[in-house]
Design a protein around this nucleic acid. Structure first.
Lengths: 240, 240
DNA sequence: TGGGCACGGATTGTCGACAATCTTGATGAT
DNA sequence: ATCATCAAGATTGTCGACAATCCGTGCCCA
C-alpha cells in the first residue's frame, strides 16, 4: 500500500477547515442513504482518515455526528458501524412520520402561497424521471428532499427538526428493505399531494400525505437481507 | 480485595471512565433545566474541566452533546453558552408537542394496562406537593419526567425520541419565561390526564393533554428577562 | 478433537502540548 | 471625547503520541 494518499493539495484542503467536517459527513451520509454502504459495514477511523486526507480526530467528530443522526452506531472500543434499523424501528418511524407530516402538510395547505410550490413541483418531476430511468439513488434522495422541503414550508422549526432524523432513517430503511417498484408510485403520491395543497384542500392534502406514507411502508419487504461486504474505501473515494 | 478502596479522591474518579461524561452532562443538564444557569451564561471549557476534575477534551465532548440537545449553543471560536430560545421557538415547540403528545396519549389510553400507571400517578403526586411547597425546581423536573414516561408507554421509540428534545427545551423555556403560579395547575392537568387514561377514554385523554400544553404555553410570560450573571463554578460545584 | 489461554497486532480512546482565534485594554490620532 | 488600531493575555481548536482495549491466532492440555 503506497502512501500516495499524501496528495495533500489535490482534492482536500482549500476548505476553510471548519466545514470540512460537514462535507465529509454529508458525503458519508449520502453514501449511506443510497445504500452504497450497507448496514453493518464497519467504518474504520484510520481508513476514513486516509481516504479523506484528514486526521483521525476529525473523522471521530464526523462519526459522532452521524451517530447522533442514528445513521451509524458507535460501539464502545469496537468502532463505528452503519446502523441497521429493525422492523420495529421501521414501524415506529413510519407512524411518527404520519403523525408529524399529516400536520405539516395541513399547515402548508392552509398557509402557503402557491408560487412557493414551484420548486417542489420541479423536484417531484425530477424524482419521477429518475424513477422512470431506474435511477434509484436519485429517486431516494429527491423523495427525501421533497418531504424535507415541504415540511419547512410549515415554518415550524421544532416540527421540521423532529422530522429530519426520521426522513434520514427512512432512506436508510428503504435502502435496506426497499422495493424498487415503489419509487414511481411515490412520485405520483407526491404530485397528488401538491395538487391538493394548491387548491387549498388541507384535509385532503393531509390525508394524501398519510396515504403516501402508508403506501411507502406497505412497499417494504421486511425480510432481512444478508449484509453484503463492500470496499469502504472505494465507495467513499471520490470526494468532491 | 475491597473494590471501593481504589479511588478515594475528592470527588471525581471512581467512575468507570466511560459514563463519567454522561454524569457530567446530566449534572449540567439539570442545572440548566431548573434555571440555575440562565440562558446566555458562558460555559468555559477550562473552568468546567477544573470543577469536574477532568480534562478539557472530555468537557468538550459533553458540551457537544448538550449542543446537540440544543440546551447549549456552540459558537465557533467563541465557546459554549446556555441556549436562549426565543418566542418563536417556544411557540413552535409547544405546537410540536401538542401534535406528538396528543397521539402518544391517545395510544397509551387505548393500550396501557392500568397498573402501569401507578408510578406515573406517584410522580404527579410528588410534583403536586413540590408545587405546593414552592419547590419550583423539583416541580419542573417531575413534570418533565411525567411527559417523558407517559410517552414511553406508547412503545414508539421514534415518537419518544422526537419528543425528548422538545421536553428538554420546554423546561429551559419555562426557566426563562415561566410563571411559578402555573406549576400547581399543571399537576391538576396531569391528574386529569391520568384519570381519563385509566377509564380508557382515549379521545378525551388526548384532548386533556392538548389542553395541558395549551395551558402551559398560555402561562408563559414572554417578556424577555435580563440575563442574570451567575457564578458557574459555584452552581456546578457539588457533583453527585 | 475441542476448549480455554495467552500473546501480538491492529484499532479505538485519552491526553498534553501547540497553533489559531478571540477579547481586552491601552494608545494615539482626528 | 470618540473611534480605530494593535499588542498581550486568555480561550478555543487541532494534532500527534501514547495508553487501553479488542480480535485473531497459535499453543497447550484435558
Amino acid at each position: 500500500m503506497s502512501k500516495s494518499a499524501k496528495n495533500s493539495k489535490s482534492h482536500p484542503s482549500a476548505e476553510p477547515g471548519d466545514d470540512i467536517e460537514e462535507v465529509i459527513v454529508e458525503h458519508i451520509r449520502t453514501r449511506v442513504l443510497i445504500g452504497a454502504l450497507p448496514p453493518g459495514t464497519k467504518l474504520g477511523e484510520e481508513l476514513l482518515a486516509e481516504t479523506f486526507g484528514v486526521t483521525r480526530s476529525r473523522i471521530r467528530q464526523c462519526l459522532q455526528r452521524l451517530s447522533y443522526e442514528q445513521l451509524v452506531e458507535l460501539k464502545a472500543n469496537r468502532g463505528a458501524f452503519i446502523a441497521s434499523p429493525g422492523i420495529k424501528d421501521a414501524k415506529d418511524i413510519f407512524e411518527a412520520r404520519r403523525v408529524i407530516e399529516r400536520v405539516t402538510t395541513e399547515i402548508v395547505a392552509r398557509t402557503v402561497l402557491t408560487h412557493r410550490l414551484r420548486d417542489l413541483r420541479r423536484k417531484v418531476d425530477a424524482q419521477e424521471t429518475a424513477a422512470l430511468h431506474g435511477n434509484r439513488k436519485m429517486a431516494i434522495t429527491e423523495a427525501g428532499d421533497f418531504h424535507r422541503r415541504l415540511s419547512s414550508l410549515a415554518h415550524n422549526a421544532a416540527l421540521a427538526g423532529a422530522l429530519e432524523p426520521l426522513i434520514l432513517r427512512t432512506a436508510l430503511i428503504f435502502g435496506l428493505y426497499g422495493n424498487s417498484g415503489a419509487m414511481f408510485s411515490v412520485a405520483e403520491h407526491h404530485h397528488r399531494i401538491l395538487d391538493l395543497i394548491e387548491i387549498g384542500d388541507s384535509n385532503e392534502a393531509a390525508s394524501a400525505m398519510e396515504r403516501c406514507l402508508y403506501a411507502l411502508e406497505g412497499n417494504l419487504d421486511l425480510r432481512r437481507v444478508g449484509d453484503a461486504a463492500v470496499d469502504v474505501r472505494r465507495v467513499l473515494q471520490r470526494i468532491l
